[in-house]
Write a protein that binds this DNA or RNA. Structure first.
Lengths: 183, 183
DNA sequence: AGCGCAATCTTTTCACTGTCAAGTTCGTGT
DNA sequence: ACACGAACTTGACAGTGAAAAGATTGCGCT
């Protein structure tokens, strides 16, 4: 047998994160095991520990990555001149496209919620959202309302609670976001 | 020692469910263990199994109970002549008052989502929600919008993502539910 | 009243998980 | 070239959910 995998994986951290995303999209955050991930990646059962310290550490990294991706997506749409409805659509698109990340992000009982890197990215995403409603009357309330609307829709959609009659989730969100925030 | 607990607990099923609610409100659904619950209730580690079969079975029962409670609460407010805004407020009040139930209910990866008793109560709650928006224009869309709004607010509130500046969550919800659904 | 049966609970065991401590292998800078 | 530290492995331990088999008890039936 010539194909012995090398002692050093190369980029184990990335590989484990990717495997976690795959496992979570299949079985939900509850059905993910450190040892199982190690197996998928082809590494000893304690390999990942060196990179994440904890199971919670792994999920912390995943959540941080998720908030970073979300912040990027939101920033991009405001940079493109998108209004508040576009911002909501981007939020929903992120939740649907990155379901694994999204589910972990809003389960703070699974990770270390005061991790500095995590906090940084989370605040960045929060700032992007706040910017989107800054020009509205009563921005405090508007921010909470907008966030609630898109977040609720996204989670209900992802858990399969909504009738999935082959409609595009983004289109649905645009429909009633326009009603709550008329231009 | 005279106080030997009897071999039969009396109402173990109820006791375990209550213990689960307590444990989940403290540590989240991830931090609940079958054995731990058995300890709290003062019963051997395999005692609960006989009543719920599974860990998932226990959570199924909890979710079913939650949907039943929610359906009752919603039915009560429509019976009292509450409009759609009142219905939303009731939804949020339920989510805050019964956080443990609520969190499990919308994590279908944790329980048996096709359990007949569960399905029955879930549908009952869904019907109550649908009734509340039946007299609106485009009730299909209105139902999804209203549900998204209150559900999103409730989950964000419960996960601690929203600024908790000592405001009553019900009042907040009334404020922007009135905006989305003017009377 | 008393008998038997089935529901309820316990005990034992097993495979599996996360975490830790100690070893092994390897890239990298000097 | 060589040591040093980072990356991974190996082995062990306590704790978990699940299943099987045994102990206890309430309850219906005659």
């Amino acid at each position: 047998m010539s194909t012995q995998r090398p002692y050093h994986h190369g980029d184990l951290r990335r590989a484990v994160l990717d495997a976690a995303v795959e496992a979570i999209t299949e079985h939900g955050p509850a059905g993910v095991g450190l040892r199982d991930l190690a197996r998928r990646v082809g590494v000893s059962h304690a390999g990942p520990v060196h990179h994440f310290k904890d199971k919670a550490g792994l999920l912390t990294a995943l959540a941080a990555e998720g908030f970073a991706l979300l912040a990027d997506a939101l920033d991009a749409t405001v940079a493109a001149g998108g209004d508040i409805v576009e911002l909501g659509a981007a939020y929903v698109r992120f939740a649907v496209d990155h379901r694994a990340h999204f589910e972990v992000m809003f389960r703070p009982d699974l990770y270390h919620r005061d991790d500095p890197a995590l906090v940084r990215e989370r605040d960045r995403a929060g700032a992007a959202l706040a910017d989107g409603v800054a020009d509205r009357p009563d921005p405090e309330l508007a921010s909470v309302a907008a966030w609630s609307l898109v977040h609720g829709f996204a989670t209900l959609w992802n858990t399969g609670a909504l009738p999935r009659d082959d409609r595009d989730p983004e289109a649905v969100v645009r429909a009633f976001a326009g009603r709550l925030f008329p231009t």
